[in-house]
Simulated scan of single mutants.
Amino acid sequence: YSWQMVRFSAKVGTNLPQLQQLLIQNLELGPYYYPPDLHTDQPEKFIMGELIREQILLLTKEEIPYSVAIAIDLALETPTITRIIATINVERDSQKGILIGKGGLMLKAIGSKARKQIQKLIFGKVYLELFVKVKPKWRQSRIHLAELGYSMEE
């Protein structure tokens, strides 16, 4: 192939349309391995849980270790709104206290930010209700891991 050279900058955005056009002209179409409207191979509930978990990690920083697991207990879609009830599982009472925060402010902030992210995912309104539950040593228990959707290979 003799391709034309294009100087571009993804950071600044210089010549990106020219680069895109060059790629379109020169690359052959390949088979679809997934349906065109599918953006991930993960179930939507899993992604919802990860969006909640992401907000926990962003808002609590070093206070909460990476020992939280999210269980989506209910995801009920109606024509006007999707109702989601989720449980945030932690290992210790102190972690539960940090996640709830003084007067429930931390849990409210987590829920508000996660709701906005989930609304982008499903392209619709979301009612999100969060609960925090202590499950001591859930990461060491095959039963708890399975309940939370984690699989362990033998």
Rank of each mutant, 00 (worst) to 15 (best):
K116V: 08
G101L: 11
K96Q: 12
A71Q: 12
E54T: 03
K96R: 14
R92F: 09
G124H: 08
P35T: 10
K125T: 11
T78I: 00
K45R: 15
I81W: 01
L105V: 08
T40H: 09
A69H: 01
I122Q: 02
A71D: 08
K120S: 13
P79D: 09
N89D: 03
A71R: 10
T40K: 06
Y32P: 00
F123E: 15
K108W: 03
R83K: 11
G97T: 06
K108S: 09
Q55T: 04
G111M: 03
L51K: 03
V68K: 00
H39V: 13
E62C: 06
P65E: 09
Q117G: 10
G111Q: 07
I56G: 00
E50C: 04
L38Q: 14
I98V: 15
Q119G: 11
K102R: 15
R53E: 05
I56L: 10
Y34V: 13
D41G: 14
I85E: 08
V68N: 01
A71L: 12
I118W: 01
S67R: 05
L76A: 14
G103T: 05
L58G: 02
G97R: 11
G30V: 11
E44P: 05
K45L: 11
S94G: 03
S67G: 11
E63R: 04
L76N: 15
I64M: 01
